[in-house]
Write a protein that binds this DNA or RNA. Structure first.
Length: 189
DNA sequence: AAACAGATGTACT
DNA sequence: GTACATCTGTTTA
């Protein structure tokens, strides 16, 4: 039985936490699967929401590590981040894709797509499939409805530039399971 | 297979 | 008003 991820797990640099999350299991009310793709965001990074300081929306990023920062993207999609590092550093890991394993039928009902590949392959899709919305912003990751379990730890982890941003595009802060069909897009080799 | 418009919260100029 | 850590349905090649 894999270990539950403790609060301490998130009290480290995003650049250490992000690759360690690949292969871990994320469940929300028992629905979810293996984390296949994440991106790191840091307060010194112009692409991060926290770069220009604290606002009402990003306040959770400035709080203690081990909490969920959920925000609305393009007015339509919800995206979930895990807050990292000591309180105040405003760093977080964006969850971009899962391998769907638990609760497939409910995911399919929410997502209205055939097959499994498009269920959780993108940050907005992950939240829609698991039922995460703005009301879950600020919830702790070590208690229900969240459940996080450590992965095998011996995975080959792919690294590359982040997706869908226009600033700091040269940072290689995207991590994923190489060759997984559940990535939002493939990693260049 | 690729390009595009459209939907539309929040933050900033 | 413009930009944005997106996704979908429709159109064009």
């Amino acid at each position: 039985m894999p270990a539950l991820l403790q609060r301490k797990f998130f009290a480290r640099s995003v650049h250490a936490v992000a690759p360690d999350l690949i292969g871990a299991t994320l469940l929300f009310n028992g629905i979810g699967g293996t984390i296949a793709e994440v991106e790191a965001y840091h307060h010194t990074d112009p692409a991060a929401h926290s770069f220009r300081g604290r606002t009402e929306r990003n306040a959770v990023m400035f709080g203690p590590p081990g909490y969920a920062y959920v925000y609305c993207s393009y007015g339509i999609h919800w995206c979930v981040n895990f807050v990292c590092e000591p309180e105040g550093s405003a760093s977080a890991v964006l969850i971009r894709a899962l391998v769907p394993i638990h609760g497939l039928s409910l995911m399919r009902r929410r997502r209205k797509v055939k097959g499994e590949r498009l269920l959780c392959s993108g940050p907005g899709r992950v939240c829609q499939a698991l039922g995460i919305t703005g009301v879950h912003n600020g919830l702790p990751l070590d208690r229900a409805p969240f459940e996080l379990r450590a992965g095998p730890g011996d995975l080959e982890i792919a690294v590359g530039p982040r997706v869908g941003i226009s600033k700091a595009v040269d940072h290689l802060w995207r991590y994923g399971i190489q060759q997984s069909p559940f990535l939002s897009k493939p990693f260049r080799t």
